[in-house]
Structures are given as structure tokens and as C-alpha cells.
Design a protein around this nucleic acid. Structure first.
Lengths: 204, 204
DNA sequence: TCGTGACCGTGACAGCTGTCATCTCCTGGG
DNA sequence: CCCAGGAGATGACAGCTGTCACGGTCACGA
């Protein structure tokens, strides 16, 4: 039998991190060599520990899991990344694959499938949650422009147009134009609704 | 040595559920006797399995963890409940304790403390995340009335006042009055912001 | 019994929002 | 070269929103 697969775990919730470590420790061909709670520590710790596969949550402080996957791709081309996340938003899948992730699994897949996903990714295969793959095709690509996304992200907090304009350094009129455009593209009628829909689809 | 403590796990994410089971299985004095993914299955499965302690996530379909704790308290008075949740919102802690939960732990506590929390709860002790306990006192009680909460919950989706009014069966004018009152109580300036703040504080 | 407060509603008003037309500037195809 | 499209901005307009004042009902405790 060959050497065990070395795994790095990245999740901001310590309890989940420890629990996943316990779960993977049950597999004799896997070994957890590093655990981090922030996205911006992934590359350094992966290098130090000589990890083969990085399990990355998306919601993390410092750097989100998708950006961390891109950073790993850049700095350590031989290391595979597998996104493990709570939210199966179609846009996340697309962006994860664009960032060079080898796999995408949501947190409500059965526990025993996780180890298998790690093995497949390590073997150079792609692992994609099948239910999401189809949904991703149906939803199509992200229609929002960069500025529209930026404005919508700020609009999530719920402030007035004037407050949004101040935070993105634009004129209030321009902000309203971008919001109006985003409202149209999301088939909604208020900016709060548009922001919610865009977030749910992983467009932000 | 006495019999192991029988634990029921409730979390809507199968991966987290399985991982927590693996984590607790490392402790020789604990045994996971049931796992459920919905709040409304907790009481039945706890009864069947003869669980001593129920670990409950808050975000669950069917019945949320706090309501599930109340249901367990009602149907199985001898069974202790321990809330294990992602969000350390002060209002959640208060409501959890009011619902009869014996403990409240957030998911970024260290993994090894979970088993200890289970033991303490089983022994009849209260376990409360210390950082939250103080924060809960600072924030004070939920100042929103029942109607204000209802209107704010619907307002989270971001629709117009007319849409909210239709969903709660009130006149648009009344909805605006409730929203205005809620905006004042949250020290915000728009209903979207008020809804966000109220949700973050666990007031909804 | 009275006062208090939650609740529901109406009407009015200032201000904010969403939409549209229009303009300029810049960039990347064809 | 010209054109399309993103970005930034302005002005106008109808409609929506947040606020306030006011009136009414009901339940609860003093």
C-alpha cells in the first residue's frame, strides 16, 4: 500500500474542523496534516505540511475558500483543492471551478462520501455534486457586471442609496442606475430583493 | 465505570452530523445512539433511542433547534438538550434557555470541549458559552412586539410594503407603522437595515 | 374604574427610490 | 476606422417609503 493522502482542513468553525478531522481519521489511507481557520493561512500551511489535498470551506475570514483555491493553484500547482461548503449556490460552483478547484461538495452529502471524494480528487479526477451540476447549467452565467455586483454587495446591509454611494465612491445617481439594472436582471422590484436573489445564486 | 452517555445528534447537514458523530465516538464514555436531520424528528427518535442528551443545531427544517428543545422539555422531561449552533446571537441564547435547553455552545469552540460540555449537561449542570453570556446581558431583552417581528421576518425577503401587507394580512399603512417603529427600535433608517439588525441579534 | 400599551387603521407630507432619456469617456473587437 | 458595451454622471418624474398625528378597539394591571 502506498503512502497515505495528506489532507489540509480549512474551516472557520473549530468544532466542524475538529469533527471533520475525526471523520477522516477513520480512513486508514488518509491523514490530516494541517488545520486552519482562515483562508489566508492555507497556502503557507499547505506548503509546510506537504499536503496533497486541501479541503476548503467557502465562508472564511481573511480569504474565502474560492480565492484560497486560486491562491493554491498559483503557488502550489501540484496540490489539489476540494471545496466543501454549506451553500449549494450554482454561481459558487462555477466560480470554484474557474478558480482551479478539483471538486465541489455540499455539506449535506453523506459523511462516508467525503473520504471517497478526497481519494478521487487526489487521483486527479473531478468531483462535482451532481444535483448542483445540472442546476448550474439551468441558471446560466452570472449576468451582473463588476460594478453591479459591488453595489449589490453593499446594498445587502440595507442602507440608503446615499450611504451606498458613499461606501463605493460613486454618485447617488450612478448607484441608482446600477441598482435599477440589477433589479431588471434579477427580475425583482426592489434593491433589497435583488441583493437577496443575487446572493442566493452566488452572483456576489 | 458506569454506562456510557447516550447522545442524539440533530443537524441538517449530513456531513457535519457524521463528523460530529466521529468526534464523539473518540470518547469512551459517550455513544451516539441516533442522528436526525430535521427538528420535528427529534422527540420521536430521542424516545426510541433512550437518549440522555440531545445535541441540537438551530437551523433545521421542520422545527428549529430551540423549538425542538422546548418539545423535548415537554415530552421527555428527563432528557437534557444542548444547543450547538453556528451563530452566537445573543437573542438565541436567551430564547434557548427559556425553551429549557441546558446548554448553549457555538460551533467555533474547540472540538475537544464538546465532549466535556455533553458530560456537564448530562450531570445536570448548565453550560453556556462565556463570551455570549456577557454579550447577552449587554444587549438586553428583545424590544420588538410580536407584530413587529412578524412584519420584519417577511421584510427580510425584500419585497415592497404592499407585498408584505398581503403576506401578513394587514393594511399597507399598518405595515408601515410597524416597520417605522421597528426602525426606531433598531436605530436604523430603512426596513432592510432594521430586518438585518434584528436578525443578527436573534430578535426574529 | 382608569390608565397603559399593543394593535389596527387612515390621511397627509417630505423625502427617497426606481425608471428613463441623454450625455461623456474609455476599451476591445470586427 | 467604427461600433458595442461598460462605466460614470445628470435631470426629470411617478411612485413608494418613513414619519407623524390621530382615532379606535382590546386586554391587563393598578
Amino acid at each position: 500500500m502506498s503512502d497515505p493522502i495528506k489532507v489540509l482542513l480549512a474551516d472557520d468553525q473549530a468544532l466542524v474542523r475538529g469533527a471533520l478531522a475525526a471523520l477522516l481519521a477513520l480512513e486508514s489511507d488518509l491523514t490530516v496534516v494541517a488545520e486552519v481557520g482562515r483562508g489566508d493561512e492555507v497556502v503557507d500551511r499547505a506548503r509546510e505540511s506537504g499536503a496533497d489535498v486541501c479541503l476548503l470551506d467557502i465562508e472564511m475570514p481573511g480569504l474565502d475558500g474560492i480565492a484560497a483555491a486560486a491562491a493554491v493553484r498559483e503557488a502550489l500547482p501540484g496540490v489539489r483543492t476540494l471545496i466543501v461548503t454549506t451553500f449549494g449556490r450554482p454561481g459558487y460552483l462555477r466560480r470554484a471551478l474557474e478558480a482551479g478547484a478539483s471538486g465541489f461538495v455540499v455539506k449535506d452529502t453523506p459523511a462516508r462520501q467525503l473520504a471517497e471524494a478526497v481519494r478521487r480528487v487526489h487521483a486527479g479526477l473531478r468531483v462535482v455534486d451532481p444535483s448542483l451540476a445540472t442546476e448550474s447549467l439551468v441558471d446560466g452565467a452570472n449576468p451582473l457586471t463588476e460594478r453591479e455586483r459591488e453595489v449589490l454587495r453593499v446594498a445587502l446591509d440595507g442602507g440608503t442609496v446615499a450611504a451606498i454611494a458613499a461606501r463605493v465612491h460613486l454618485s447617488p445617481g450612478t448607484v441608482r442606475n446600477h441598482l435599477s439594472s440589477a433589479i431588471g436582471k434579477t427580475s425583482t422590484s426592489t434593491r433589497a430583493e435583488a441583493a437577496r436573489v443575487a446572493r442566493e445564486r452566488g452572483w456576489l
